[in-house]
Design a protein around this nucleic acid. Structure first.
Lengths: 115, 115
DNA sequence: AGGACTTACAACCATTTGGTTGTACGATAG
DNA sequence: CTATCGTACAACCAAATGGTTGTAAGTCCT
C-alpha cells in the first residue's frame, strides 16, 4: 500500500535535473524572490540570451517556474509547490534511513524505474 | 550576511545530478534501507554490471553513498547527511519564497554561479 | 507604417552522459 | 595452483546537454 501518490520517475528526473545546474538554481532563487522577465534574467549571466531562455525552459518543464505573458515581455515566477515536492522526496529517503525495516521492495514502487 | 556556509556549486551540481536518474534514486533508496554489494544491486536492474557500477560511482561522487571494502565484495551504504544537505538547500528556496524581500543579490553569493 | 524591443526557435557544435563489451586483477574456494 | 567471483576500468557508441548564431514574429512607440 503506497502512502502518497508519488510523482512519476520522469517528472523527478526533470525536477532534479533542472536543479543540477548552478545557473538554473540561481535563476530559480531570483524568481522565487521576485518575478522577472526573461531578458532581465538574461542580463545577469555571462551567456547569450538564447542560453538563458533554454535554462528557463528547463525550469518551466520541471514546473519549478511558471511563465506568464505580460504585453511583449514574459514574466517568470517561481513555483514553491515543485520545490516542496522535491523536498518531500528527500525527506522520504531520510524516512527510509530512519526506519530501516528491510524488505523495501513494495515501498519502492515509488521511485520506480522498472516500468 | 550568509547564515550557513553553503556547499559549492560543483558539489550541488553533483548532488542533484545524481538524483536526476530513476535508477540511481532506486539504488539510493535501497542502500538507505540496508547495505548492499555492487553485484547485489546490479542483479536488480535490467542493465550490465558495469552500468550499475557507474551509477554507484556517481552516487559516491555526490557523497550520497559510501563504499566500504569487505573481503572481495564492496558494501554500499547510504549517507543520510548528503540527503539532508540537499534538503536544506530546497528549504532555503522556500525561505526565499516566503520572505520575498527583493534585493536578493547579496544572499545569492550562495548558489553562486559566477566564480 | 516603420523601428526598436522581447521572445521563440532552428541549426549547429563540443562535451557529457548512460549504456555497451572486453580485459585485468585481487580475494576466496577447491 | 587453478578456477571462480566481485570489482575495476578502458574503449567505444548514441543520445542528451549546454552553449552558440541567425532568423522570424509579436508588441509597443512615434
Amino acid at each position: 500500500m503506497v502512502v502518497s501518490p508519488e510523482p512519476s520517475a520522469d517528472y523527478l528526473d526533470g525536477l532534479f535535473g533542472a536543479l543540477a545546474d548552478a545557473t538554473r538554481r540561481d535563476i530559480l532563487a531570483r524568481v522565487m524572490d521576485a518575478e522577472a522577465s526573461v531578458s532581465e534574467l538574461a542580463a545577469r549571466y555571462p551567456m547569450s540570451f538564447a542560453a538563458v531562455q533554454k535554462h528557463v525552459a528547463v525550469l518551466e518543464q520541471a514546473q519549478l517556474v511558471v511563465k506568464r505573458r505580460d504585453g511583449r515581455t514574459q514574466r517568470v515566477a517561481g513555483n514553491p509547490d515543485a520545490v516542496r515536492r522535491a523536498n518531500r522526496l528527500l525527506q522520504q529517503f531520510e524516512e527510509i534511513w530512519r526506519s530501516r525495516v528491510g524488505g523495501l521492495d513494495e515501498l519502492l514502487s515509488t521511485s520506480n524505474q522498472g516500468e
